[in-house]
Design a protein around this nucleic acid. Structure first.
Lengths: 233, 233
DNA sequence: TTGACAACATACTTTGCAGTATGTTCAAGT
DNA sequence: ACTTGAACATACTGCAAAGTATGTTGTCAA
């Protein structure tokens, strides 16, 4: 990788953020593929056609890079769902909109959400170098407050009589397992249209709502998106 | 760790299998806690109050140890579910029995099932030292044939009109995400009775069957196990 | 036009850990 | 009783990868 390969290699400060973004995307892909521990910095660098030096220029350590990807993943999914949290709708409709937004974001930013997942169950057993571990805890708190929004709307929807469950924690966990399923089993294919993704998300939401004992009525359509039938995957 | 610590350190050949078992359990716990890559052999050895030498006496490499844990996890869950696969019952009842057996096994052998999980999504991106990679593929085939049994019973249950789904692959993936949920979110507590575990499993099965659009009738009880109400976790 | 500094690349140091080589102990067969 | 070998422990080696130190280049501000 000689300087000549990059026409405008020196863009200075203003788009340092862009450079960090590119690094994060490469890192997210690597972390998703082989996990945090098994991924080397050289690997991440190679993926974006670069070298170690560039990454260590922007990040103090491998852990900090990981945490930045984690943080970004959280931000992405929160920004996707947040508009629907306080919508002026019946709880059940809010719930459905939140589920849909969550799955769609998962499908679109899978590598990042995979890192979030790794981060969550990395907290349980201290693997991080102390200083970064505090950050991990902070992010876990963010994650908790995110899931609290779902917990709340679940309670409200049950009060409405629209859904039903026994233990809300188990129910919520099952909901998230279902919603986050694509992180594990979804593999984006070459010529996949936005519409196909949307159908896939709809099916995930369908199963999730069923899981919650959604009273009969299989699917009154949401205002904005259109309903379809088909064979997604 | 001096020899004196162990009264009967030299048990010779006959119970070499027992020694391997102890190693595997320690390994399963470590792999579950920190993942394959982040776990060191010394760590596994320390957990069972031993040293590296013992492990390398029984296993040629870290990978082979991992594969043995993987294999054992598969065997455990297969042996738990297999009796119900060919039972002379309506497909829906067979399905329910299989789901229950699966979840129960997951709850009881969580560390092993976690390793299975790691093994499954380790295959996608070649991290293993070539020779062992072939073993990984073999085990993945086993895993596939296991999940095929669920696929079959799902089709039969739909033919019966007992359940409903759109894309069977997505449905099956969602089912497994739900069923394997405890691998991620369940943490065994100190004074936890068998009965509490059973209730937890029942709730997981409940949500999973609902997910499959189980026609109305919330729960006709199975022959053997008794039905309960309560707050499991 | 010339410092100064951001944005890298390159070359080096360090270390944790997989794997190995070797030593030690006991148990069973002869 | 001595020999062989299984079942370990201990001490060592080698390498991969994290982290660092230093070199290089272009851009902007003055």
């Amino acid at each position: 990788m000689t300087p000549a390969d990059r026409p405008t290699r020196y863009r200075r400060q203003s788009d340092a953020e862009l450079s960090r973004m590119e690094i994060m995307e490469g890192a997210a892909l690597c972390f998703e593929a082989r996990g945090f521990a098994a991924t080397s910095i050289d690997e991440v660098a190679a993926r974006i056609g670069s070298t170690k030096g560039r990454i260590y220029h922007h990040y103090a350590s491998k852990s900090e890079l990981f945490l930045d990807v984690y943080r970004t993943g959280m931000r992405l999914i929160f920004e996707a769902v947040e508009p629907h949290i306080e919508a002026d709708l019946p709880a059940f409709d809010r719930l459905r909109a939140m589920l849909k937004a969550h799955v769609l974001c998962v499908l679109r930013t899978k590598p990042f959400q995979n890192v979030v997942r790794q981060g969550v169950d990395m907290l349980r057993h201290g693997v991080m170098p102390a200083r970064e571990h505090a950050e991990l805890i902070q992010l876990a708190r963010l994650r908790d407050s995110y899931s609290d929004h779902f917990l709340t709307v679940l309670e409200q929807a049950r009060a409405e009589g629209a859904i039903d469950y026994q233990n809300i924690k188990i129910a919520l966990n099952s909901v998230f397992m279902c919603l986050n399923g694509p992180i594990v089993w979804f593999t984006p294919r070459d010529g996949q249209t936005e519409e196909e993704i949307d159908l896939l998300a709809d099916e995930c939401v369908l199963y999730t709502l069923r899981l919650l004992g959604q009273a009969a009525a299989p699917s009154r359509p949401l205002p904005s998106p259109k309903s379809h039938q088909g064979e997604p995957a």
